[in-house]
Design a binder for these strands. Structure first.
Lengths: 118, 118
DNA sequence: CTATATATATCAGCGACCGGCATATGTTGT
DNA sequence: ACAACATATGCCGGTCGCTGATATATATAG
């Protein structure tokens, strides 16, 4: 029931799951890849967020498996999560476009078309 | 010194100032416009954030003026703020693009190119 | 003379994130 | 044999930005 905008770690989590179901540790790696190494999700953030998102119905536990003697919980994006992600990216895209438009105009102004003085 | 990603209200504040200097109340209106009425910045968020951003050197108090008997503080985007905004939009643009790419692929998969069965 | 718009400011509370710690198994290096 | 590292999940105290409420003050509209 929360209409508040997603924070970046949460946005990245949903994005990482939009692709295909993944388990917690795999999400850390995937997010590392998506963000080109700029975001290293902490386990404290991760598992807390996963519980919260399941609670909110944005993701669900797809299955639990054991690979090489290690237990895994595989999460999948739920439909509600897909909708939220779509709406969020849509809004963010508009904000980013506006910010870039203004930054470009700002730079154009700074250059001063006819002779830059001081 | 905080490299943490900006939250949306902060992002919108910097975006609203990228255009031209504005005072607090004007920022509320501008953000309302930018977000097409979807974000109504609260004064609690606003003035707290403005103080914080000045403290961080991302914006500065351009001037103080009195218009129609009402005091105003006009804020301007500092160079550090411009850099942070540019970096932030750049990263967000990549994340948004990736999210939309995955959502599109997801929908294409759901449609099933040749005969959708159940 | 009340309500609304303009304008700034503070504060308690909440919730997401951070960083550290704990636990356990498998692999690689020395 | 032992250390170090990668894989994998989980908890918890602290921090910090945002929310919502409240306060103050002037100008304008009804």
């Amino acid at each position: 029931m929360n209409e508040r905008p997603l924070q970046e770690p949460t946005l990245l989590l949903l994005t990482a799951l939009a692709d295909e179901p993944r388990h917690g540790y795999g999400l850390i790696q995937e997010i590392d890849a998506i963000s080109q190494g700029r975001v290293r999700m902490r386990t404290g953030t991760l598992y807390g967020a996963l519980d919260r998102l399941v609670q909110q119905g944005l993701i669900r536990v797809e299955r639990e498996e054991v690979v090489d003697g290690r237990a895994r919980k595989v999460y999948a994006l739920a439909e509600a999560g897909q909708d939220v992600l779509a709406a969020e990216t849509e809004r963010l895209r508009a904000v980013v476009a506006e910010a870039e438009r203004r930054l470009a105009a700002r730079r154009a102004h700074a250059i001063r078309p006819k002779g830059a003085l001081a």
